[in-house]
Structure formats: C-alpha cells, structure tokens
Design a protein around this nucleic acid. Sequence first.
DNA 1: CTTGACCTTCACATCAATGTGACGGTTCGA
DNA 2: TCGAACCGTCACATTGATGTGAAGGTCAAG
Lengths: 136, 136
Amino acid sequence: MRIGELSERTGTPRRLLRYYEEQGLIAADRCPNGYRDYDERFVDRVMQIRGLLDAGLPTRIIKQILPCLDKPRVIHFSDATPEMIATLEHERDRMTERITCLVRNRDAIAEYLETVLRNRSGVGCGQDPPREGATP
Amino acid sequence: MRIGELSERTGTPRRLLRYYEEQGLIAADRCPNGYRDYDERFVDRVMQIRGLLDAGLPTRIIKQILPCLDKPRVIHFSDATPEMIATLEHERDRMTERITCLVRNRDAIAEYLETVLRNRSGVGCGQDPPREGATP
DNA sequence: CTTGACCTTCACATCAATGTGACGGTTCGA
DNA sequence: TCGAACCGTCACATTGATGTGAAGGTCAAG
C-alpha cells in the first residue's frame, strides 16, 4: 500500500510516517516511480510506534528496542551488546516506574470520579467529604 | 524551604520549579524578601508532577487533575463541572490505554532480556531461537 | 491532453519542556 | 565590608514531535 492508505489505516499523518522513516523506525521500500510501498505489517508496526511515543519513549529509544519486540522471536545476538542490554534493562525499569505512576494517578482519578458521580444526584452540592450511610 | 532545597530534594532544576509555578501547577508563597517559600508538601507534589509529565501528560492537563488527587480527599464540587468530569474520564481512559501499551511493551522487553541472558553463557552465539532441553 | 488526486523533497513554523546566561538583589560568614 | 552562595526576573536557545505549505513528478479517468 502507499503512504495515504497507511496513513488512513493508522490514523497517522503522512508527515509523521515520513518522519518515522527518517528516524529509522520504519523502512519502506520504493515503487519504480519513487513512491513508498508498505506491506500489511506496517500497520501494526506504526500503531506500536505510536503507542510507545505516546507512552513517552523518544524515537531514539524506540528505534533501539523495536527490533527486540518483533513477533517471530528471532534473537539477533549480534544486537545483544552489553550496551544494548544495559539500555534495555534501563528502559524496562523506567517503563515500570512509569506504569506504577500512571496506575496510581489513574486510580486516584477514577476514585475521585466515582465519589463525585455517586454524590452527584441526590445529595446537594456541599463541600463535605463523602459520608457513608447517610440519607437512609 | 527555599527553591534550592526543593530543587535538591526533588532532583528538579530550579528553572523547572519556576516553570511549574508559571504554569499554575504549584503556588509558592513568598518571603518578605521575595524569595519563594515552600513547605514539606511540595516535595511530594513536585514528584507527582514529574511523574505525570514523564508519563506523557501535558502541564495543561496536570493542572486540571492535580486538585482532584490531593490526599485529604476534599471534593470541590464547584470544580465538578460537566466539562471537568468529561476531561477526567477522557484522561483516565487515555491513561489506561497508555498503561496497557506500556505493560505490553515492557513485558516484551523483559521477555527478550530473559531469553538473551539465559542463552548468554553456555550456548554459543547462534542465531537460533531458544531451544528448550538442549545441551543436556 | 488535461485535470485532480495522489506522491516526492525541502524548508520553515510551532509547541511544550528544558537549558543557559545575563544582570541585579539578599544574606551570611570571614 | 567583601565575597560566596543564594535568590529574583527576563529572555533567548534548543530539542523532539509535529503542522503546513511550496514546487514539482506520476497516474488514472474524463
């Protein structure tokens, strides 16, 4: 498929698909006329990239870890340099931190929402913290 | 405490503490001489802000949701406008998406690392996927 | 053959989060 | 009273992910 279709199917501006290529995240091959030519796998690939970007990883890092995440788990031991291992471990730990932080804050938001929504209709708009067992 | 101490205790450049204030995320009061004066609670506050930023939330959103996350759960119903509720629900869902994406990718990295590290010493540097039960 | 919808590259603009430095005031100990 | 180590504001630079538009090639349909 060409860039327009990939753009539609992934909800990603063409500009960014070219940018990801420029950053070495994806490598499309070219039709004789110079147009980029993507195959099906790029749909998932791009979604994954977007997810990682949205999760806060920079393209520099994504480029490094993407090959390790490929589906047919082929271990390229040539990639497994000590630096690479260190990078991966570091990134894994950072992601774990991020996850716990996100979970904690999301749960706080969810809890807040529940409280607010529960008291929404029925109880007047007071300032009080929620009182269990009131208004029987 | 003054900005320098807060900076040290949170590992955050002074510049950024001032930036967060400018963005309305924290509000320090001032000593007679104009210096910012922070109390203990700002340490946690700043850490939380950094965590949220690192998790990919923009200051604009953090500013909105921070008041809902305060420890003594005081519900300010005046803040609970329909738009606010919608924002919070939206953000909660985005965070959930981010979390699942992060978890998936972190687990992939972890799995890769395990595989590589398990085969690291003992088996020669082949290209093969890991074979269970080999080298008895 | 022309038109419109694609595609290309190039380049400059923007936005948020940060870095950096200039310039000046405050506090405190030697 | 001087200098070091703080603090303040202001303002410009940078970086990464994007937006946007210009100038031009390709191709299928009318």
